[in-house]
Design a protein around this nucleic acid. Structure first.
Lengths: 324, 324
DNA sequence: CTGTTAGCGCGTTCAT
DNA sequence: ATGAACGCGCTAACAG
C-alpha cells in the first residue's frame, strides 16, 4: 500500500480509503490509485486488514460431509447469499465424530471468522463453551432445538418421521421398515416413524442401519438385508433419496416391483428424485430456502445489529410420486 | 497471550513458544501455561500469527462445483492429507465462468494462502499473472498441460476420449453418440472420442450437449433428445456417470434395453457406477490418488523446499461392466 | 478530501 | 530456558 501510494502521489492511508470507501476519495486521486494498483499488481493483505479492523469478512461453515448433496445445496445457497454481501466462506467437513467437530471449531475460531454456521444442534459441551465465549453470531441449521447457541434455522426431524409414519399407514400399508444411515438426525426420524406407524397400525417396523455414507451401494445392501430378514410386501422409509434409489434398484434386481411389492419413500427430494423410475415419493426440505434464511439471519446480525431471533422452523412436505 | 502469560507467570513470548514449539519450553512452565489456557479459554489468533510469520497455514482450493461428486472426492483426499500436516483448506466454487474464477483467485490471494490448488489448466491471462506474481506453490489438477503455472497433477482428456472412441469401435459398435455437459474438459473428451471413432469406423457420432449441471435429469433429457434425433442401436459416451445413469433410466422408460439396444459408457467411475442396473461401463480416474498426489506435491514444496516438478499424468482406465 | 499517529496480536531476532 | 524490542500491513481515530 505504501508503494502504491508513492506511485500515485498520496499517502498509504488514502490508498486504504480508496479501497474500502471510494466515496471518501476524490475522483482524480482515485484514478491515480487505480492506475498504480494495476501497475504494481497489488493485492491487499486481508490478514492485516482483519487484524486491524477486527473484522475478517470470513464466515465459517461446518457441515458433516461435502459429498452429501443435501448439504451441498444448502451450503451453495448460503455461500451465494453471503458472498453477495462481501463475505467469504470457510467450509470444512466435520465427518461423523462430534469430537472432530470440536477440534474444527477451534481451528476455525482461531481464524477469527465474523460468524459461524453449524450443521445440527448437537455439539460437545466444550464446543458450546468455545462458541459462547467467542461471542460471535452463530447459526445452527438443519435441525431445531429449544436450546440454540444463538440463531437456528431448520425443521423437526421428529415431526418429519412421525408425519411419514402416519402417511404410510394412511396409504394402507400394514408392513413397514426403515433403512437408514447411522446419522443422529436420521435415527431420530426413524424412531419417530416407527412410533407413529406403530400407533396407527399396532405393527412395529423392521429397521436396518447402513454403514458409512449413504449411497446407491449401501441402499442396495440395506434392501438386501431387509429381504433376507424376510421382509415382503410393504413400505420402506429411507433416510435419504440416495439410499431410496439404491433400494429401488435392488428391488428390481430381485425381480420385485416398486411400489406393488415394495413401496419406497425417500428423504430430501434431491433433484434426481423426480426422475427415477418409478419417480420417488419423498420428503421435501427446501434446502435453498434454508441456506438463504440462515444467511439472512446472520446478515441481520452482522450488518444491522439485529437482536437474537427465535429458532426458525421451515418445515417440510411429503411429495407423493410413484414409488409409494 | 499476554493474559495467559501473566496467569502462568511468564512472558507473552514464552506462551507463543509453548504453542509453536513445545520443546523450547520447560516441562514445568509448559504445564502452567496449559493450565492458564484452559482457565482463560484462550484461542490463538491465527490472523496475527500469519501476519507476523508470513505463513498462514491456509491452502486455497478452487473447484468448479462442490456439488459435483467427482471433485468432492478429490478435494476430500486432498484436504485430509493437508490437514494431517497442519494446513487448513479454504474451498470455493468457481462455477462455469473463468472470469469468476479470476475474481475468486484475487479474493483468495488476499487471504495470503501458503499454496493454491486449482481445477483445470485453463485460466484467464490475468489469473495467471496474479498467481505468478504471488509466487506461491500452486497445483493445477484434473488436467495436464505443457504450460503449467507451477505443479500439475492430472490426466489427458484428449487421450481419454480417444481411448474410449477406439474401445467403442473395438466392441463392434457402428453407431455412436456423445451426451455431454457443457464443460470445457468434457467437450475435449467428446471431440477426441468422435475423432477416434470416426477414424476407426468412418462414422461420425451424433452429439448432444446438455445444459447446466450434469444430473439424472439432464441425462434423461439428453437421451430423449438423442432418440428424437433418430438415434437407435448404438453406443453413447457420456461426460459423467450421473449423466450415464440418467440415460439408462430414460432408455428403460422408453422400453429399450441396455446394452442390447443402447449401450452406455460413463465417465468417472463414481461409487454408484458398479451398482446401477445394468452395472455401468465407465472410465476410472483415481480421484483419491489424484487428491493426495496433489497434496504431496504441494507439501514437498512447502515443507522441504523441493524444486518445481514436471506435470504428473496419473492416467485412467476403462472399467468394462455390463452397460457397454 | 487528505495526512498523522497509534495500535491490532502475534512471531522473530537478539539478548541473557 | 526465558525475556525485550521490533515489525508484519493494515484500519481507526483524530486533526487539518
Amino acid at each position: 500500500m505504501e508503494m502504491v501510494g508513492k506511485l500515485a502521489g498520496v499517502s498509504q492511508v488514502t490508498v486504504s480509503r480508496a479501497l474500502n470507501d471510494p466515496s471518501k476519495v476524490s475522483k482524480a486521486t482515485m484514478a491515480k490509485i487505480q492506475e498504480a494498483i494495476a501497475a504494481t499488481g497489488f493485492v491487499p493483505n486481508a490478514l492485516a486488514g482483519a487484524l486491524a479492523s477486527n473484522r475478517s469478512r470470513l464466515i465459517s461453515a461446518l457441515v458433516p460431509s461435502v459429498t452429501n448433496i443435501t448439504h451441498a445445496a444448502m451450503v451453495q445457497s448460503f455461500t451465494e447469499r453471503m458472498r453477495s454481501h462481501g463475505y467469504q466462506i470457510m467450509l470444512s467437513e466435520t465427518g461423523f465424530d462430534s469430537k472432530e467437530e470440536e477440534a474444527l471449531i477451534g481451528a476455525h475460531l482461531s481464524r477469527r471468522p465474523d460468524a459461524m454456521m453449524l450443521t445440527g444442534a448437537r455439539h460437545t459441551p466444550a464446543a458450546r463453551r468455545m462458541l459462547l465465549a467467542a461471542n460471535l453470531p452463530t447459526v445452527e441449521i438443519w435441525d431445531v432445538t429449544d436450546t440454540p447457541i444463538d440463531l437456528c434455522v431448520g425443521f423437526s426431524h421428529v415431526d418429519a418421521g412421525a408425519v411419514v409414519g402416519r402417511f404410510a399407514a394412511e396409504q394402507g400399508y400394514r408392513t413397514a421398515a426403515c433403512v437408514t444411515a447411522a446419522d443422529e438426525r436420521a435415527l431420530r426420524r426413524k424412531d419417530a416413524f416407527c412410533a407413529a406407524f406403530h400407533t396407527e397400525t399396532s405393527v412395529r417396523p423392521e429397521t436396518v442401519v447402513t454403514e458409512g455414507q449413504a449411497s446407491l451401494r449401501s441402499g442396495r445392501e440395506g434392501m438386501s438385508t431387509l429381504l433376507d430378514l424376510g421382509f415382503k410386501q410393504g413400505v420402506v422409509f429411507c433416510s435419504s433419496d440416495q439410499l431410496a434409489h439404491g433400494l429401488m434398484i435392488e428391488t428390481r434386481a430381485r425381480g420385485l416391483r416398486t411400489p406393488e411389492d415394495i413401496a419406497i419413500i425417500g428423504f430430501g427430494d434431491q433433484d434426481f428424485a423426480a426422475h427415477t423410475l418409478p419417480a420417488l415419493t419423498t420428503v421435501r426440505v427446501d434446502r435453498v430456502e434454508l441456506g438463504s434464511r440462515a444467511a439472512d439471519a446472520l446478515l441481520g446480525r452482522l450488518e444491522h445489529g439485529d437482536a437474537p431471533q427465535a429458532p426458525i422452523n421451515i418445515g417440510f412436505e411429503i411429495i407423493r410420486r410413484d414409488s409409494a
